[in-house]
Amino acid sequence: MNQKRLRSTFLEAIHSIKDYIDQHPLEIKTISALIHKTHSQIGINLLHQGFRQLYGTGIKEYEIRKRLEAAAYLVQKDELTMQEITAKCGYSSQSSFVRAFKEVHGITPGQWRTRHVPLLFS
């Protein structure tokens, strides 16, 4: 296989894995599972290196950011309790969820809900 085609195959695999994360942000998955689910033919080390080079962040960091973006949407919908959202996002404790949420969004989930949920009686 020539070098150019090989690079193209790896790029497709990396894009495919990113797309999978984007479409399934609340699904907790290992790197090996991501490779398997997207039927990608790429090694773990090359995937890590290529992902960082293409997107400027590691896969796990990207996955966590996407999960917490999905969490912000769930918080905003105001249909689930914080405890339910914490579990849905794969966190075992509410305090670790709040800490991660604040790191990504700059405010706590409670503050996010207050700012983004419309008042029923205005």
Rank of each mutant, 00 (worst) to 15 (best):
M1V: 07
N2Y: 08
Q3T: 08
S8L: 13
F10V: 15
F10E: 14
F10H: 15
E12C: 13
A13K: 06
I14T: 15
H15D: 12
H15K: 15
S16L: 02
K18N: 12
K18Q: 11
D19I: 14
D19M: 15
I21S: 01
I21E: 01
Q23G: 09
H24G: 02
H24W: 01
P25D: 11
L26S: 04
L26C: 06
I28D: 05
I28M: 09
K29S: 14
I31D: 06
S32Q: 14
S32P: 05
A33D: 07
A33G: 03
A33S: 09
L34V: 00
I35V: 12
H36F: 03
H36C: 06
K37F: 06
T38P: 00
H39Q: 13
S40F: 02
S40R: 04
S40I: 05
G43A: 11
N45G: 11
N45W: 13
L47S: 03
L47F: 01
H48P: 01
Q49H: 10
G50T: 13
F51L: 02
R52G: 11
R52Q: 10
L54I: 05
L54R: 11
G56T: 05
G56A: 03
I59N: 02
K60I: 11
E61S: 15
Y62D: 01
Y62S: 03
R65V: 10
K66Y: 02
K66A: 14
R67T: 09
A71S: 11
A72N: 04
V75Y: 04
K77M: 10
D78I: 01
D78M: 03
D78H: 11
M82C: 04
I85H: 00
I85F: 03
T86F: 00
A87Y: 04
A87F: 02
A87N: 09
G90V: 08
Y91C: 05
Y91L: 07
S92F: 08
S92W: 03
S93Q: 14
Q94R: 10
Q94D: 13
S96V: 09
S96L: 05
F101Y: 05
F101N: 02
K102G: 05
E103N: 09
V104L: 06
H105N: 08
H105W: 04
G106Q: 08
G106S: 10
G106N: 11
I107Q: 09
P109N: 06
G110C: 12
Q111K: 10
W112L: 04
W112Y: 12
T114N: 10
R115Q: 09
R115K: 07
R115C: 07
H116W: 08
L119R: 05
L120E: 07
F121I: 09
F121C: 08
